[in-house]
Design a protein around this nucleic acid. Structure first.
Lengths: 231, 231
DNA sequence: CGCCGAACACTTGTATGCAAGAACCGGGAA
DNA sequence: TTCCCGGTTCTTGCATACAAGTGTTCGGCG
């Protein structure tokens, strides 16, 4: 679960990266919703889709299973994990705890330069919000959270946190379908940024927990049967 | 490198579990110290050792890499992750935070039956301590921590916590080489059990954090160069 | 004697073959 | 109609074959 995916977006013709690329593609397809929860992942299908053999696909599936995005049963097709079965409430609780911990640390060690960097990202995020560019907003939102955790300076915390992110992003995408919530999230982010700038760890931690609590309430609305379908 | 009990626990003729068993065996070998940090994991070697082909071994390696026990580089032999590079201090911090969270939850929801169960395990752990059976003690110790996290009733928390355990166990095994620390840990566990029985979540959380802080101090002693060799 | 290079052995990455089990489909009986 | 049963087809689990990259060693050369 602690994949610190060092491999990035390099499109190297490198021979030794077929399986890593399969991981990336599959994860992207799951997180983006291209693959829906419950969808079966038949190896042969993705072999043809990605133009590789079964071996890299199988290894990619193992990796994603370790991340919790896929469920595997012996002799059965792996399936995309259900967001509901992931139990959003519990997921939010854990992530909130981890980010609260990161917040306190970050307040203690953040440099002026890093603060400026985050403020810049925050600014761009606000612009995305005003233009209604959800995808861009989500990406920048993620960047802010990630930079905060990184700045905390605990690699184990970062890796643990990162492992929870794919499912978290799936849920956040749902929550932000609610326009009112989206506005609320933006407001909260501004307050959190102030606390960070003031290096008020306790306040930031509290704001962080509240931020997650509020997000959870909205996400849950979209998971009850008959809820508005995403996308 | 000691011999792996090739015919360990279950000798199921089950067809669909060769790779899962390889994961178990490899993890056990790493956690127990049978495989030392930096050791290269050559697929062919373990093929012969486990009597399987490369495919299950490769998949097992991916899984363990995702757990952070193994590091893989393209076209190079995977190696057992170095405990020092895992950064014990950071690891302890995160686990302490997670278990503190679990403690508070557990105090809120634990049943009388579960409490009795933990007390029983605790009793057996004390006996192991008095008999100086380190392996047995560690196993029971782990069981107590695990049951507490389970009882907290947050599956995401449990999974996240579990993912950190392999490295944690490796470190704990080192810490308990120090007899004084062993005694201290036993004492702390007794206090924690009292807090749990009293359902005092705040106290238990604080004790839990202290428990980890103390363990860390001793573990670190064994990681400086020239420290007493384990085993 | 030491440095450099090329062939060699070894290792991992990927593809494919084969067998066992699961899902699926259709037919027959209650 | 619906449920159950059998066979067919698909899918996974494991093994193996082949290709490509890496480290190593031994011989030649400066």
């Amino acid at each position: 679960m602690m994949t610190v995916s060092t491999l990035s977006d390099d499109d190297s013709p490198q021979k030794g990266a077929l399986h890593a690329k399969s991981v990336e593609k599959l994860r992207e397809m799951i997180v983006s919703g291209d693959l829906r929860p419950g969808d079966r992942i038949r190896e042969s299908h993705f072999c043809k889709a990605f133009g590789v053999s079964r071996t890299p696909i199988r290894e990619a599936v193992r990796t994603l299973a370790a991340e919790g995005l896929i469920r595997i049963s012996p002799n059965r097709s792996p399936v995309v994990a259900d967001l509901a079965e992931v139990d959003l409430g519990h997921l939010y609780d854990v992530v909130a705890t981890l980010e609260a911990m990161a917040s306190e640390q970050a307040c203690r060690v953040i440099t002026q330069g890093e603060l400026v960097e985050i403020i810049a990202i925050h600014g761009r995020m606000l612009e995305s919000f005003e233009r209604g560019e959800r995808a861009e907003y989500l990406k920048l939102n993620f960047r802010i959270h990630q930079r905060t955790v990184e700045i905390a300076g605990n690699p184990v915390l970062h890796a643990t946190w990162l492992a929870l992110m794919p499912n978290m992003e799936r849920a956040r995408a749902l929550a932000n379908l609610d326009r009112a919530r989206w506005l609320g999230a933006v407001t909260e982010h501004s307050k959190m940024l102030s606390a960070l700038a003031a290096r008020d760890g306790a306040l930031l931690a509290a704001l962080t927990r509240a931020h997650f609590r509020n997000g959870l309430k909205v996400s849950e609305k979209f998971l009850v049967p008959g809820a508005p379908a995403p996308l």
